[in-house]
């Protein structure tokens, strides 16, 4: 299946922040971080529904996260992720003159995850970073 091209903006969320203060390694932090908020029609075009796992991928990396249906007005092609180790797997290092990474301008492809896939675990992310 051809994936959905999106532009991802990362934002802060107080509930995810609180979970991270308890533990970066907890199930609570993972469940509140490893999500992507998609426009409702975009979600439908993927044949997916709220809570389904999706693979988000670009030249920088890839993660499997849970899809969340947006409650905002229609915003096709615009996706939201919370700033976290999951979103940072996708943030391009290509920077502007000010050397600021593209945290709010991540181009990526979203598609339904394979049946056996699970949400990317923090231990997997750590292994990738450690190389």
């Amino acid at each position: 299946m051809v994936g959905l091209e999106v532009s991802i903006v990362t934002v802060r969320d107080i509930f995810q922040d609180e979970a991270g203060r308890h533990s970066r390694f907890s199930e609570e932090y993972r469940s509140k971080s490893a999500v992507i908020i998609l426009d409702r029609q975009d979600l439908g075009s993927l044949g997916a529904k709220e809570g389904d796992l999706v693979a988000v991928e670009n030249d920088t990396g890839s993660v499997i996260v849970a899809a969340v249906a947006s409650h905002d007005d229609a915003h096709p092609g615009l996706a939201i992720m919370y700033n976290s180790p999951w979103s940072n797997q996708l943030v391009p290092e290509a920077v502007c003159q000010s050397s600021i990474p593209g945290f709010k301008s991540i181009r990526a492809t979203v598609q339904p995850a394979e049946g056996s896939a699970a949400v990317t675990d923090i231990s997997e992310i750590f292994s990738r970073i450690k190389g």
Binding site: R24, S84, P101
Partner: peptide, 8 residues
């Protein structure tokens, strides 16, 4: 390691 891009 959590808050910066993967490459950094």
């Amino acid at each position: 390691l959590s808050s910066l891009p993967f490459g950094t």
